[in-house]
């Protein structure tokens, strides 16, 4: 029998006015699995990810993350939102660090406010995580003094500090030079080996092929193909997938 999935999305739908951006999206992610989401620009990848932690409110369908079920047809209770986000960490393309706080405060403040940890506790945990992402020498710096790759690793540490069960990444390396992107990908690989459940929207085909256990191809607001990455990369079923892969791999 299949293990109970950590994320279970059923027929998710989202539209802006008349424009349907997500249509009938159904997917599961098992514990410890790394799911990579690829697809052309405008496919709805970010929107799907943002619906999962309710930064966008879905218009139809339902989904479950761990023990929290969100049904788009019913009013969403603030308590459920809190509980849902409690198990999800999110990393953005543009890092979104807090520029007026030092690196360590960026990582510690949410722990203090959200988990009620003491400052000492939160900063100790923060240092531990900064070390893990290779930034033990940066706690007193301000984010603007850090390279993009460092900023993104700080953002990862900030999200990890709240002990999420699943990490969501929205194109974490797209605004970075390739070399700096590698630092970030290395951290993500390590997270994956440690068994973190991850959903990663990415244009890094190599990462998708080598690290992910589950590949999801989106286009036009829907999932056109999903399954084992080796299988999809070597023998895509769908013509649209083939076209997309050819376009990105030939670059």
């Amino acid at each position: 029998m299949e293990p109970h999935p950590v994320i279970d999305v059923q027929s998710l739908r989202k539209q802006y006015g008349e424009h349907v951006v997500l249509d009938d999206v159904t997917l599961q992610v098992a514990e410890g699995e790394v799911a990579a989401v690829i697809g052309p620009s405008g496919a709805g990848k970010s929107t799907m990810l943002r619906c999962l932690n309710l930064l966008e409110k879905p218009d139809g369908g339902r989904f479950r993350v761990q023990d929290t079920t969100i049904d788009a047809s019913a009013p969403i209770r603030p308590k459920d939102v809190k509980q849902l986000r409690r198990s999800l960490g999110m990393v953005f393309q543009s890092f979104n660090l807090f520029p007026h706080l030092t690196v360590l405060r960026n990582v510690a403040l949410p722990q203090e406010r959200v988990l009620g940890r003491s400052r000492a506790e939160a900063e100790a945990r923060g240092m531990e995580l900064l070390e893990r992402v290779g930034l033990a020498d940066k706690p007193a710096q301000y984010p603007s003094r850090c390279s993009g790759g460092q900023q993104q690793r700080i953002a990862i540490a900030r999200a990890l500090a709240l002990d999420p069960e699943v990490m969501l990444f929205d194109e974490p390396t797209s605004s970075l030079d390739p070399e700096l992107g590698l630092e970030v990908l290395a951290v993500m690989r390590e997270l994956a080996t440690e068994g973190m459940t991850m959903v990663v929207v990415t244009h890094e085909m190599q990462f998708a092929r080598d690290v992910s256990d589950h590949l999801i191809v989106m286009a036009h607001g829907g999932i056109i193909e999903q399954g084992k990455p080796e299988q999809i990369f070597s023998d895509p079923h769908h013509a649209r997938t083939r076209r997309f892969l050819r376009a990105v791999l030939d670059r």
Binding site: L88, M90, P110, R113
Partner: peptide, 19 residues
């Protein structure tokens, strides 16, 4: 984006304003 990040980190609206 920063407000969204705070929201995704589960910070309350009041805390987001304040900090």
């Amino acid at each position: 984006g920063e407000v969204e990040a705070a929201e995704a980190l589960n910070m309350s609206r009041f805390d987001t304003l304040r900090f």
